[in-house]
Design a protein around this nucleic acid. Structure first.
Length: 259
DNA sequence: AATCCGGGGTG
DNA sequence: CACCCAGGATT
């Protein structure tokens, strides 16, 4: 409970003022959460403003063309998010009578809404006790409790979700969830966290054991990329030089070393 | 369980 | 340039 109290106090003191924190309208909360998936606030904010301006209600979004939505999404990346956003808007308007699902269980059924986003909307918009576990939460919890279970392992995902569920403040789940994510985003950062001014200096296991820079643990993804590819080119005797552009037409944008 | 999807950030 | 960040869908 000391953890929760300090966290929420820190949040009251240090949180950023953001437009989706001025509302509990599930449409706006949902919109902001989809935009902020894999996206930093700084990058997503102008897109959020543009969407709210152009599509003030879920009915406006549902009635829009996919082309116009994708155009407004341009530059954000992960374009399936925009297509799922449109699909779900139409689904809620046409199949759910325009009524936004209001429980974690029902939110989870929406396309483009997984465990994290369902928990975020349920807690922030409806004050349901549903613990969020995003990248920030993995980092804060693994460091504070000194947990070395890889966050991208099946066991890790279960462990952190379970821990987050035991920690969430039942009296103010919306504030608690936003506090722990905000803390991870702007203080307990991936690189160079501000440990010198951290309210958890005396209780953070990672800080006391010099493990801040190794937590959270993540499994390597042994991605094998082809680094060298040797081949022979027989020269056209009528030509005096190789053309890199000619090779580019055959192999695409691969860099070549001529030995 | 592994892979893909797009950008931005960092060293 | 190489590598990291990371939620959800898909296979």
């Amino acid at each position: 409970m000391d953890f929760n109290h300090k966290l929420i106090t820190w949040y009251s003191d240090k949180k950023r003022e953001l437009p989706w924190r001025e509302t509990s309208n599930p449409y706006y909360i949902w919109l902001s959460e989809i935009i902020l998936q894999q996206t930093q606030v700084k990058q997503g904010l102008p897109y959020y403003d543009a969407f709210v301006t152009q599509y003030p209600t879920i009915f406006d979004l549902a009635n829009a063309s996919e082309t116009s939505i994708l155009k407004l999404w341009q530059g954000l990346g992960y374009y399936s998010r925009a297509r799922n956003l449109h699909f779900t808007a139409k689904h809620i308007v046409n199949e759910l009578d325009g009524k936004f699902p209001n429980t974690y269980k029902d939110l989870l059924k929406l396309k483009g809404v997984g465990d994290y986003t369902a928990s975020a909307i349920a807690s922030i918009a409806f004050n349901e006790v549903a613990a969020v576990v995003d990248g920030n939460v993995y980092r804060v919890l693994s460091r504070y409790f000194g947990i070395e279970t890889p966050i991208n392992s099946t066991l890790g995902i279960k462990e952190f979700k379970s821990l987050a569920s035991t920690l969430i403040d039942h009296k103010q789940p919306a504030t608690y969830n936003q506090a722990i994510m905000e803390f991870g985003a702007i203080q307990c950062k991936p690189k160079n966290p501000d440990c010198t001014v951290c309210p958890f200096q005396d209780s953070c296991v990672a800080l006391q054991n010099q493990m801040v820079d190794v937590l959270p643990v993540k499994l390597k993804k042994t991605k094998v990329t082809v680094k060298y590819f040797n081949f022979l080119v027989f020269m056209d005797p009528n030509k005096k030089h190789f053309s890199k552009n000619a090779l580019k037409k055959v192999f695409g944008n691969i860099s070549f070393n001529f030995l």
